[in-house]
Nucleic acid binder design. Sequence first.
DNA 1: AGCTCTTATGAATCATTGA
DNA 2: GTCAATGATTCATAAGAGC
Lengths: 276, 276
Amino acid sequence: MPIPLIKLGDCLDILKEFPDNHIDLIFTSPPYADRRKTTYGGVSPDKYVEWFLPISMELLRVLKPDGTFILNIREKAENGELSTYVLELVLALRKQGWLWTEEFIWHKKNSYPGKWPNRFRNAWERLLQFNKNKHFNMYQDEVKIPIGNWATGRLKNLSETDKIRDNAKNGSGFGKNISNWVGKESVYPDNVLYLSTECSNKNHSAAFPDALPEWFIRLFTKEGDTVLDPFMGSGTTVFVANKMNRNAIGIEIKPEYFEMVKMGMEKPNQIIFNWS
Amino acid sequence: MPIPLIKLGDCLDILKEFPDNHIDLIFTSPPYADRRKTTYGGVSPDKYVEWFLPISMELLRVLKPDGTFILNIREKAENGELSTYVLELVLALRKQGWLWTEEFIWHKKNSYPGKWPNRFRNAWERLLQFNKNKHFNMYQDEVKIPIGNWATGRLKNLSETDKIRDNAKNGSGFGKNISNWVGKESVYPDNVLYLSTECSNKNHSAAFPDALPEWFIRLFTKEGDTVLDPFMGSGTTVFVANKMNRNAIGIEIKPEYFEMVKMGMEKPNQIIFNWS
DNA sequence: AGCTCTTATGAATCATTGA
DNA sequence: GTCAATGATTCATAAGAGC
């Protein structure tokens, strides 16, 4: 199994050292714009596009022609109105040469509680898909789901619980049902992912569940391919990609997170187990 | 019960006859942009914003200051890429004076099966909320939903920590006091509507289920208020609003649809039934 | 193995208060 | 005024312990 490559620093600088056309999938969740700087050093909404474009220029360069870029993002409501920086970013990325191919929705099973005078709680995020070419690699059969569990985009069998529990019991690794997925009893999913927000990396303010990168890695890469997360955070993308026998590359600007991921990698039992 | 007012003609012309500030809710699903003109006389994607803005200017005028405009729309993939006219429209509407308050997602419970080489089937649509002011009418209690099954067991036996406010450890400001929930039977929903696509009006190419306008009518209007659909189509919004004792106004440019709605209104058994 | 019960917590907003 | 900090509000899920 390949060892993940992780780098400490500003991804704009680090990316410049990378060669052209060698990444198969970029899966990332950049810091969201935030006027009130909270846990993850916010970029202000009006500077967001300007800040992101030089980075996405490098991403465009390092991505293979048939590779895919998945951007997990959601604008915030502030002072009663939604920010428009995500919309502006999509338009700007298109001008930069990206094709806006699809918008998946992550429908959060358990979103944070809350209700406000003019608003209900938010229970979804965007997963914007961009490509360099109209033809890109997509392994649709790899994300087929059993017809029995089929209830419009539900991914019950991808739940981390099942896998960990299974792993703990017999030591043979999780994924017992994966072979069942590719069978006559399975169907193709749609573009809504219905997942809970639980995640194994508790020390990051913005971690997503393993199932999220897992699904896209499965769909857009095969074993031995290379997956990049330029905003690594607590390393979910990197760990998951590694477990799935993909070459994983992560870049993180914050030393605390970088060290956390590095330490996690040094504990093999946490990151290495069988993937059938 | 008031009788719906329906008008045949281009909504841009008809709207000009309407007085200022007298609509409480505009709920509509305009014709989607489509280069290949299909059933509903398509507007081309690059002309879409230009075509829509004069209409939305009138909508802005006729809407009450505390009223709401809900726009049901979803861009189509064409030639492998998503059109950007919806994003551009949101930005343009903001410039026109609208506040972009929220984006609800309609997660379609049972969308048609289907798969393309580079794409899965689409299972969601946008419901963009716009307002004239930061303060608008919102009757949140009217759309409460039954509390989840977890509550039955959870609220039977309360531990000590359940009886006090228990703040989240991560400093996010979240906290809970479980004992406040005892006896609660309904909770506030979130901003994802998980509804099936079935609808009573089968003869229109873009009809939505009754539950969609119902939810927004319930949330943003009270009995006796006025609901407008400037792209009436098969009349779902008008029929539902009427059943809910709201004044309904519909405008339709196509004589076939107009006549269909008119005939439906003349058959009371089709529009009057129990409303749970 | 399977059930019940307990506990922890997840990219949140807005009104109010104070500087 | 304008801007920043603080308090109030609020569900559903999964892990884990116990039987």
